[in-house]
Amino acid sequence: MFAFMRPIDILNNHKLKRTSCREGIIEIVMEANQALSENEIRERLAGNYDRTTFYRSFKTLVEHHIIHKIVVDNQVVKYALDKPETHKSAHAHFYCNTCNTVKCLDNIPVQHYALPDGYAGEETEVLIKGTCSVCKEQASL
């Protein structure tokens, strides 16, 4: 998907130490065509990393804006490669209520809202919930 980028280049761009766990997490997120949960990433990660190593690596990648969090609700949180790495602008996300997938909607830009005096916006998240095309097609069979 992002063939022009390598995990090691991303880590170097952020002046982060290269570790196999960090590289593995980035590679998994890059190869997925949808956002993944922490558990999905951990299950796909090759190698025997203890919980502490995984979570420290994961936290570092989130803090350095290499991957970003997509909060669906208080039980579902997914992660995808962040905008600086993908060179995408702010965009909406789609959550399928049927198969629980989260996809970036790159062609749907996030609107900038005029806020009242004294307010300063820092982030805007747009999450659209519904049925994805695959589930909708399967339901019509």
Rank of each mutant, 00 (worst) to 15 (best):
N107V: 09
V102P: 12
E43C: 08
H112L: 05
N48M: 02
M1D: 14
K15H: 15
D82I: 15
G121Q: 03
A3D: 09
E31A: 03
L11A: 00
E27M: 06
Y49W: 09
E63S: 06
A32R: 00
Y55W: 11
G24K: 00
I66Q: 06
N13M: 00
T19R: 11
V62W: 02
L45E: 05
P7E: 12
E122H: 05
H14R: 15
T86C: 10
H91E: 10
E85Y: 04
N107R: 09
N33K: 13
R6P: 00
I25G: 07
V29G: 01
N74H: 13
A32P: 04
D73V: 12
V126Y: 02
Y49L: 04
S57C: 02
A80L: 07
Q111T: 05
A46C: 02
Y113E: 15
R6M: 14
H14M: 11
G121C: 15
G47K: 08
H93R: 11
V126I: 12
A35R: 06
V110F: 08
T86D: 13
T131C: 01
C135R: 08
A139H: 00
N100M: 12
R6T: 04
I41R: 04
H112S: 12
G121F: 02
R56T: 01
A114Y: 01
T101C: 10
L115P: 09
A120Q: 15
I26P: 03
S140L: 13
M5E: 15
T101L: 11
P116M: 11
L11N: 07
M5V: 03
F4N: 04
G118K: 03
D73F: 07
N12S: 15
N13A: 04
R51W: 08
N12R: 15
I10M: 05
H14Y: 04
C96E: 04
E31I: 05
R22N: 07
A32E: 11
E23L: 11
H68F: 13
V76S: 07
K88A: 14
T124Q: 08
L141P: 03
L81A: 05
S37L: 07
R44W: 01
S89Q: 12
L61A: 01
N13D: 13
A80F: 04
D117W: 00
F54Q: 06
T124P: 14
G24Q: 01
S133N: 13
H68K: 05
E31G: 02
V126T: 07
S133W: 08
L127W: 06
F94D: 01
G47Y: 12
K78M: 09
F2M: 13
K83V: 01
C135Q: 10
R42L: 13
I128C: 02
E43K: 12
S140F: 05
S37G: 11
H93K: 09
L81W: 06
L81Y: 02
V110C: 06
F2G: 13
H68P: 04
Y113G: 12
I8A: 12
T86S: 15
